[in-house]
Amino acid sequence: MNLNDRQRRLLFAGILVLLTAAGLYLTFAKPDDGPDRPEAKSSESATAPPTGPASPPPGIQTPVNPNDFDIYRLLPFTRQEFATAADLAQRFVAAYGTYRFDEPPETYSQRLAGFVTDDLRTQLTRDATTPGLLEERRREQIVARGSASLDQVRTIEDNSIIFVVTGTQQVTKGTTESSDSRKYAVTVTRNGGSLRIYSFQPADAGQAGDTG
């Protein structure tokens, strides 16, 4: 296309106007509202889920009255949570010590499932299905009835409580009856919005506290 001098000057002026307008827009335009802007990051951080205990203690600011002292205001567990954890530990130890030679090991494992975390349930199921153990119980026709008593609170952490629990078994082998007692350290921990047995072992073996 052939342009005369006047047309070329007009075309050049039009291009210059467009370039100037583009430069002004890039200089003064507001940043976009993309996810990388500081405001967006601040908002995302503000809505992040809280960490730590599900029920942080409210603390005590008034003078302590020995006749009306609520210790649960200084603990990371409420009175209800503490009672639930204690009941869970006691009932678990009683259930752990209860079994029969003529019941499938799956029944025993299922009976414990409602008390424990998934990892501990896997371990207990593996232990309960040991061929030598099952054969011994069948051969001697062992029937055990468990009971338990809460003895002590060993440790309280932000998300776990360790109880010392005595488990007692009334054991029948054929026509012979006997009794046996053992102390266990039972760790109850918060697990997915509920309380579950995280681990347990003989009380004299020691046990770590908080599970995070």
Rank of each mutant, 00 (worst) to 15 (best):
Q90Y: 01
E157F: 12
A48G: 06
R182I: 00
D32M: 12
F115W: 08
E39Q: 14
L133W: 08
K30I: 06
L74G: 03
Q90K: 12
L124K: 06
Y198V: 02
P56E: 06
A185P: 03
A85V: 03
G167H: 02
S55E: 11
G192L: 07
Q123M: 13
R8H: 05
L26K: 12
S45C: 10
R8P: 01
A144G: 02
G34Y: 10
D68Q: 10
D32H: 11
P76R: 08
P202A: 08
I60N: 06
T187V: 04
A83M: 12
L16E: 12
Q7C: 07
L112T: 05
D36K: 13
L18H: 01
V165F: 00
N65A: 12
Y72M: 11
T175W: 05
I156C: 11
S149R: 11
L124D: 06
A128F: 05
R196H: 07
G34P: 09
G14N: 03
E44A: 15
T107I: 13
A13P: 01
K183C: 00
G23C: 09
P104Y: 06
E157V: 11
D32S: 15
S147Q: 11
I142V: 15
R100L: 01
D127T: 08
I161D: 09
A94R: 00
S45V: 11
S160A: 15
G206V: 01
L88Y: 04
E177K: 07
F77R: 05
V171W: 00
Q169D: 00
G193Y: 05
V171K: 00
A48T: 13
R190E: 06
A40S: 15
P35I: 15
A21R: 08
R196Y: 02
V153L: 09
Y99E: 00
G114A: 14
A21G: 13
A144D: 00
R154W: 05
G14A: 10
V93L: 00
L75I: 13
E136S: 04
I197A: 07
L120D: 12
T187A: 07
N4S: 11
R37A: 11
E140S: 05
Q7A: 14
I71S: 10
P38T: 06
L18N: 02
Q123A: 13
L120T: 11
A29Q: 14
K30V: 12
E103Q: 10
A86G: 10
P53D: 04
